[in-house]
């Protein structure tokens, strides 16, 4: 027993028995269908985006991106993401903590509520804010009286984006925290740590990969959101147009190079997210396996 024994946690590979394996032709057909489907519906459009963006050369591409309205749209999108992602990180961690670590009345209700943005059309999410903050809305008069502009301005766009993206971090963390249980936190408390130290030194490091994964997805959605933002933005060029909205405007003006140039940035963001997500899954998968073996 004194020998230092190192346990490695090899990912567990399930062996396939011959009985449940399809014949070779059947396998080939299934794979062909999957690849053809992905090729036609996902890969081809992506290639077309970049092809159209560069159709008139690199010069036209950079010019389209350098145009003031496009730059303003990019700035606004970054700003909205920079506000809504941290907000949702705070919300996501609080909600996951509450749901995973203690029992309270209305827990099931809260869990269901977190999923609401996934089940509601983004347009509705936007409309809700119009009804709330619009000129004829519930708070419209009051806001107008105090000179606060929410609708057709940056605050409205941020609110709509927060609404649409809030499940991402919470949903990533809840199952992870539930699985890890309270043991580590109890240990930290018994050693004299206060609540904040326990969170900072124990809970957060235990969920960091899951959190990063959630942030990544949240960010991708925050930058790419169209429906909800479209309803509340007012489409004021150079002021309240985010990148997805700008793409639509340019496209409707038959400015294909401009539209696809901005779209290529969003597509690029999607690709970067995908690569990071895959890397995280590799890393995070190992972490989860270690958690189970622990």
């Amino acid at each position: 027993m004194a020998d230092p024994e190192i346990k490695s946690y090899e990912p567990y590979h399930e062996s396939r028995s011959a009985a449940v394996t399809e014949s070779r032709p059947a396998q080939a057909v299934l794979m062909a269908i999957a690849f053809a489907f992905l090729g036609i519906f996902l890969l081809l459009p992506l290639i077309i985006v970049f092809h159209e963006a560069l159709a008139k050369g690199v010069g036209a591409y950079t010019q389209a991106l350098g145009e003031p309205d496009a730059r303003s749209a990019i700035r606004l999108t970054l700003l909205v993401a920079a506000i809504s992602v941290p907000l949702n990180v705070v919300f996501g961690i609080s909600a996951a903590w509450a749901i995973a670590k203690f029992e309270f009345k209305g827990k099931a209700f809260l869990t269901t509520l977190i999923d609401l943005p996934f089940s509601v059309s983004p347009v509705i999410s936007g409309l809700v804010y119009v009804l709330l903050f619009g000129a004829q809305g519930l708070l419209g008069e009051w806001l107008k009286g105090h000179g606060i502009q929410i609708l057709f301005a940056v605050p409205g766009i941020v609110l709509a984006t927060v609404f649409v993206t809030f499940p991402f971090v919470a949903r990533e963390l809840i199952p992870l925290m539930q699985e890890q249980g309270n043991g580590d936190e109890e240990a930290a408390l018994s050693l004299g740590a206060n609540g904040w130290q326990t969170f900072w030194y124990v809970t957060l490091p235990n969920v960091k990969w899951g959190l990063l994964y959630g942030v990544l997805l949240c960010n991708a959605r925050a930058m790419g959101e169209f429906g909800a933002v479209s309803v509340v933005s007012g489409h004021i060029r150079g002021l309240t147009n985010t990148m997805p909205l700008h793409v639509e405007i340019l496209y409707n003006e038959y400015n294909a190079v401009g539209a696809f140039a901005v779209a290529s940035l969003l597509a690029g963001l999607a690709l970067v997210t995908l690569v990071l997500k895959t890397l995280l899954e590799m890393r995070y998968g190992a972490e989860l396996a270690a958690t189970r073996g622990h």
Binding site: G183, E186, N206, T291, H294
Partner: peptide, 15 residues
């Protein structure tokens, strides 16, 4: 209370 508590599943901080 300043007690030392040892858990069945160790509860070591894995990181």
């Amino acid at each position: 209370r300043n007690v030392g508590f040892v858990f069945q599943h160790y509860a070591l901080f894995r990181h």
